Amino acid sequence: MKRLLVLFLVLVTTIFAEVKTELKSYKVLVDKEGVETKVEAQSAAPGDIIEYNFFIANETEEALERLNPGIPVPVGTTLIPKETNPEGYLVSINQRDFYPYPILEEGVPVNDSEYRLVSWNIEKLEPGKSLNLDIQVKVNGGDGQ
C-alpha cells in the first residue's frame, strides 16, 4: 500500500509539474498625470485598486482541454468589470453558479461588490502556450462603501 501511494504521488507530481500556474497580486498606482503603474501588493487600504493576475502555461506535449480557471474576489472588495481580461468571463455570487456579467436579479444588475469569483471557459490550451487572466478589485471603505 505504501509503495502504491508513493507511486501515485510521483505520477501526480510529474503530471502537474508540466502545467505551470501562478497567481500574483499588484497594487495599481496612478500618478498625477494619470500614468498607471503596478507594484507587488504587500498590503491594501480602503480605496486601493488591486489587480490579480493568474498565469497558466501548458508545458506538456498535449493540448489541455476544457479548462475553467477562476480568480476569487475577496470579501470586502468590489469587482471592476471593465478591467477583467480576457473578455467572455463568467461571474458568481455564490462560487457555485456562473453567469455572464452582469448577473440580474429581478431585472436589476447585482452590485459589483457581491461577486465572489470570476471564471473563464478555455476550450483548449495548446502545448507551449500560456494565458494571463486578470481582474481588478477596489478595496471597500473610505468612500461610503
Rank of each mutant, 00 (worst) to 15 (best):
P72Q: 08
A41L: 11
V39H: 07
P72A: 11
G107A: 09
V110M: 06
I56H: 07
P81W: 03
L104W: 12
E65I: 12
T84Q: 04
L117G: 08
K124C: 05
R66Q: 09
E106C: 04
V118H: 13
L64S: 06
L67V: 09
V91C: 14
N111T: 10
T77F: 03
P127W: 01
Y99Q: 15
S113N: 13
I56P: 06
L125R: 04
I93C: 12
P74Q: 04
S92W: 14
Y52S: 12
P109C: 12
K138Q: 06
R116Q: 15
I80G: 00
I71S: 03
I49W: 00
G76Y: 01
L90N: 13
E65P: 00
L90V: 13
I122T: 12
G88D: 15
G47F: 02
P86G: 09
S113W: 05
I49S: 00
I56S: 05
A57P: 01
Y99G: 10
P127L: 01
V110F: 08
E114A: 15
I80S: 00
R66P: 00
P46E: 03
V118W: 12
V75S: 08
L125Q: 05
V118E: 13
L90R: 13
L125M: 07
L131H: 09
V137K: 02
Q136T: 04
N53I: 13
G128Y: 01
L79Y: 12
Y52T: 12
D112P: 03
V108P: 00
Y99A: 15
F98S: 13
P46H: 03
D97C: 08
A45I: 04
N68E: 14
L117A: 13
E83D: 03
P109S: 11
N53W: 04
P127F: 02
L79M: 11
Y101G: 10
V91S: 15
E40N: 11
E87W: 06
E105D: 07
P46C: 03
P127V: 02
P72I: 09
E106R: 14
S119C: 14
P81H: 03
R66D: 12
K82S: 10
V75M: 08
E83A: 06
Y101C: 13
Y89E: 14
A45Y: 06
V137Y: 01
L125H: 04
S130K: 05
F55S: 10
Q95A: 15
E62P: 00
N132F: 12
F54G: 05
R96E: 15
E87A: 14
V110W: 07
V73C: 09
G76E: 02
E59N: 08
Q42A: 05
T84R: 06
E59M: 02
G88C: 15
E106H: 11
P127A: 02
N58M: 02
G47P: 01
I135R: 05
T77N: 03
V110C: 07
D134N: 12
Y52Q: 11
K82R: 06
N111Q: 10
F98C: 13
F98H: 13
K138V: 08
I56C: 06
I49Q: 01
E126H: 01
V75F: 08
G107Q: 10
F54Y: 14
P46I: 07
L67G: 03
N140W: 00
P109H: 12
K82Y: 07
P102D: 09
Q95N: 14
D97R: 08
L104G: 12
V118R: 13
R66M: 09
E123W: 14
Q136F: 04
K129S: 05
N53R: 14
L117E: 15
A41P: 09
A57M: 04
L67K: 08
G107E: 12
